[in-house]
Design a binder for these strands. Structure first.
Length: 873
DNA sequence: AAACTGTCCC
């Protein structure tokens, strides 16, 4: 379809371009707001409002007329110097209003403030009252020459006989410099004085209200406009359209356009830019194509907005076609056009053309530089982006808010904490921290670089936080494994500010990592009450929360209810099935996704490979690995190799796994060797484990977990001497095994257990429950698995230590405190041990409870003495 | 004309 669009441009490419600059493009920027002094309209308005009426010309002696005529003649030919000279030389009695007016008009046109002031002083010293037409001319002169304050002084002085056009002039001048409040003040004063506005008044005031986001006032003006009969003026309706788009009321804007009989190029442009602004770039392009079909003249604004639409929908071919049209229309020197092209090429994934567009630009502004910085970030060239920022600065282009946030984004994505801190210093030096988007970007940078302390420091210094500030912090805590902080901040936020869907998407991963099902349910309720559940991001986050909290059933229910699933929805479900040991269901979901026409990405492949690995589906795993390369043209990354090594190792193909590591085209990291080491434990291959472990220790010498893993392998082989040596090695490096802990949520409250936790108030009943179970197990022929004790001591002692594992304590606590029949959900920070796994199976049978245990790797569903992992984890 | 917060894998 986009191709046909591109073609239609070439077919209808002979539109007029000459009028582009002069058309009344008054919708986009305050700069163009006051259009009636621009080229096409000037004469009409000046002659009707400003020129001296003939009746006031005094008919006197011929000589007097002569002086005036001379001055006017000089003015007519644009000879300001001689006109002023003659004015100064003439006697007061020789001059009439015509002469003063003409000179002031010329001063205004040539923007000659000096001469204008001189004329003003001549008028004053001649004692001519500043009122009526002369007053208006003076105001116009000052304003045109950029002396708004002077103009305002005279404006206020002659307030009583001000005409509408002067009010319009002042209002639009204030709007031009961004002082919308002053424009609104003048508008209200005007209303108070009973002066009725005209179409220009309303265009201007609508823009002011819209920019300040005062939608209610806009609607009131809309009513006024219709009452006063301006409802058919396209300038006014165009402003209304733009206003509604700005406040996000897309339907109202469309309705106005549909009802507008006389559409001009600005009306069309307003539709295109409004659609782009509100995320409907496809519709924008449809309007553009319709313009071509109807042979409506196209101007610079049309092309700029349509190129932006191409950028958003990623249509390179149409973008290129528009580029060509712009060149034909002689826009190649327009900075705005070139900046948009740069951005379009970058967003369409074409960095080279973006760079070329940048280099070809005659005039580069801060926007051009910022767009190029963003282009580098998009391609992952973070250091180049940062370098570009400093290059821009050294070339004398001062960074603005946009360039600051862009370079911070580069630091954030590139994980460059130090460079980010440098930029922060730059911001402090230049007093830019007070700007909220900059502070927000700073927080995001610190959060993405893992420094939540610094992020919080920035956060705490923001006097008035917006929704982005809160979301950034909450999401930062979630991502940096500080879920409790995320929840705490969320509670704090609710006192001050209303959360939105994004807040929920930021917060839910915190519940997921805590396995906080009840809190997660509470948030789900909040989502439903506030109507956030229709947002796909929120729904995806919810599904993932239920997966991670062990409730695959709820996850699946929600998943099935989503009518339009995106890639992430599918990926969440695939990895969810994988985590819960349902490999075949993961595969079925993957296939359904393909049928739905969704293309998997690298993460989807990681998830499906991971699912195969956890269910021991070797052939299927290889199938996906190969199809990733051959069908999807993707290059497997470290994580994909890690999954394959894991899969081979778990299924007992240890030497094949070893070979894969040796022959893989990228350098294996500790995770890859670690996966094989795990396999060595499962299959009790001490010899290979030693070989593999040395690779691991070399790559990650400070990770105590790997030493413990090898120690366990030795312990299982009862090589106590080696265990001892390894423990010494750990001690020498000063490493500490991260202590195992497990937690359980009962009525929304968490209880955390560490190994052999006797401090708990219910410790006595917990231990007696576990002891009874142990006795029962023994009677039924289960011998405790002592190999995990890591202690070379008497068996009794080992048994005691085994009984004290944190997951056992948490499970026992659950049995004691949750109503019968309720599923017991426990989460653990490390992998579950063999003995605990055995006991959990037994527990599920004798207590007739379903137990769902989440360890650091996956879920175990214990039911009737069996585990969903089929003892394979 | 450009920018800041969001869901998935390891």
């Amino acid at each position: 379809m986009l191709l046909t669009m591109a073609k239609s441009i070439t077919n209808f490419g002979t539109y007029s371009t000459c009028n582009c600059h002069t058309s009344e493009a008054n919708y986009a920027k305050p700069r163009n707001c006051f259009i009636f002094f621009q080229q096409p309209s000037r004469k009409y308005f000046l002659s009707s409002y400003l020129d001296v009426p003939r009746s006031s010309t005094r008919v006197g002696a011929f000589a007097k007329l002569d002086e005036n005529t001379k001055i006017c003649k000089f003015c007519e030919v644009g000879d300001l110097r001689n006109a002023v000279e003659l004015l100064r030389m003439s006697q007061k009695s020789e001059l009439d209003l015509n002469a003063y007016s003409s000179i002031l008009q010329l001063c205004a046109e040539h923007k000659c403030l000096q001469e204008g002031k001189m004329v003003h002083s001549v008028i004053s010293s001649n004692g001519i009252p500043i009122e009526g037409v002369l007053g208006a001319k003076l105001v116009f002169m000052y304003v045109s020459c950029g002396a708004l304050r002077e103009g305002r002084r005279i404006f206020d002085h002659i307030l009583s006989d001000n005409k509408v056009f002067l009010w319009n002039l002042m209002m639009s001048e204030y709007a031009k410099i961004g002082d919308y409040r002053e424009s609104i003040y003048l508008f209200k004063k005007m209303q108070k004085l009973g002066i009725t506005g005209n179409s220009y008044t309303f265009s201007c005031i609508l823009k002011c209200f819209a920019t300040l986001g005062r939608v209610g006032e806009c609607k009131r003006i809309h009513g006024c406009v219709y009452k006063l009969g301006f409802g058919s003026y396209n300038t006014v309706v165009n402003s209304l359209i733009a206003t509604y788009f700005k406040s996000g009321e897309v339907d109202s804007a469309h309705k106005l356009f549909d009802e507008l009989g006389d559409r001009d190029v600005v009306s069309w442009n307003s539709m295109i830019s409004g659609c782009v602004m509100n995320g409907f770039s496809h519709s924008a392009l449809e309007f553009f194509v319709q313009m071509l079909i109807l042979r409506v003249g196209v101007d610079l604004a049309t092309l700029v907005n349509s190129v932006a639409a191409c950028a958003n929908v990623g249509s390179l071919s149409l973008g290129r076609a528009l580029h060509g049209q712009g060149v034909k229309a002689c826009f190649s020197r327009e900075v705005m056009f070139n900046n948009t092209l740069l951005d379009m090429y970058s967003k369409c994934g074409n960095l080279n053309d973006a760079i070329q567009a940048f280099e070809k630009m005659g005039q580069k502004t801060v926007v051009s530089w910022t767009s190029l910085i963003a282009a580098y970030v998009r391609e992952g060239l973070y250091d180049d982006a940062i370098r570009l920022f400093y290059e821009m600065e050294s070339k004398g282009v001062s960074p603005d808010v946009y360039s600051m946030t862009s370079v911070l984004h580069a630091c954030a994505c590139g994980n460059s904490l130090d460079k980010g801190r440098d930029v922060h210093n730059y911001i402090r030096k230049n007093n830019m921290a007070l700007c909220l988007p900059v502070s927000n970007a700073l927080m995001d940078m610190y959060a993405k670089c893992g420094s939540m302390e610094e992020a919080y420091l920035v956060f705490s210094q923001i006097p008035v936080k917006d929704i982005v500030s809160w979301n950034t912090m909450i999401g930062g805590y979630s991502k940096n494994s500080l879920p409790n902080e995320a929840l705490k901040l969320f509670a704090e936020m609710q006192k001050e500010s209303r959360p939105d869907g994004i807040t929920m998407a930021c917060l839910l991963p915190a519940c997921g990592s805590l396995a906080a099902l009840e809190i997660g349910r509470g948030i789900h309720g909040c989502i439903l009450r506030n109507g956030y559940s229709s947002e796909l991001h929120v729904a995806n986050a919810l599904i993932d929360m239920y997966v991670k909290c062990g409730s695959l059933v709820h996850a699946r229910l929600l998943f099935d209810m989503i009518p339009e699933k995106d890639l992430i929805t599918w990926t969440v479900m695939i990895s969810g099935c994988g985590m819960h040991g349902l490999g075949n269901e993961a595969i079925a979901t993957f296939q359904k996704m393909r049928i739905a026409g969704i293309k998997p990405d690298e993460i989807t492949f990681t998830s499906i490979l991971y699912a195969c690995s956890h269910s021991g589906l070797l052939n299927e795993g290889w199938g996906f690995f190969n199809s990733m390369i051959s069908e999807c043209n993707m290059e497997p990354k470290l994580e994909h190799y890690a999954c394959m090594v894991d899969l081979l190792a778990r299924t007992g193909n240890l030497s094949k796994a070893y070979n894969l590591i040796e022959t893989m085209p990228i350098k294996p990291d500790a995770t890859i060797w670690g996966a094989l080491l795990c396999g060595c434990r499962i299959h009790h291959d001490v010899e290979l484990a030693e070989k593999v472990a040395e690779h691991v220790f070399e790559l990650e010498p400070d990770n105590a977990g790997y030493y413990v893993l090898l120690a366990n392998i030795y312990a299982e082989a009862e090589k106590w001497e080696e265990v001892k040596k390894l423990r010494e090695r750990i001690g020498k490096r000063g490493l500490k095994k991260s202590p195992g802990c497990s937690w359980i949520e009962v009525q929304g409250k968490f209880t955390t257990f560490v190994s052999a936790d006797t401090a708990h108030p219910q410790a006595k009943s917990i231990f007696s429950l576990l002891n009874n179970l142990r006795i029962k197990m023994k009677n039924e022929g289960h011998s405790p698995k002592m190999r995990y004790a890591l202690i070379n001591a008497g068996d009794m002692e080992k048994e005691v230590a085994l009984c004290g594992h944190s997951e056992k304590l948490a499970m026992a606590f659950g049995i004691l405190n949750l109503p019968s029949g309720r599923t017991i959900r426990v989460a653990k920070n490390l992998r579950v041990c063999d003995d605990c796994h055995e006991m959990a199976k037994f527990m599920s049978k004798t207590t007739r409870r379903e137990i769902i245990l989440r360890d650091s790797n996956r879920f175990h569903h214990f039911k009737d003495g069996f585990c969903s992992c089929r003892d394979f984890w």
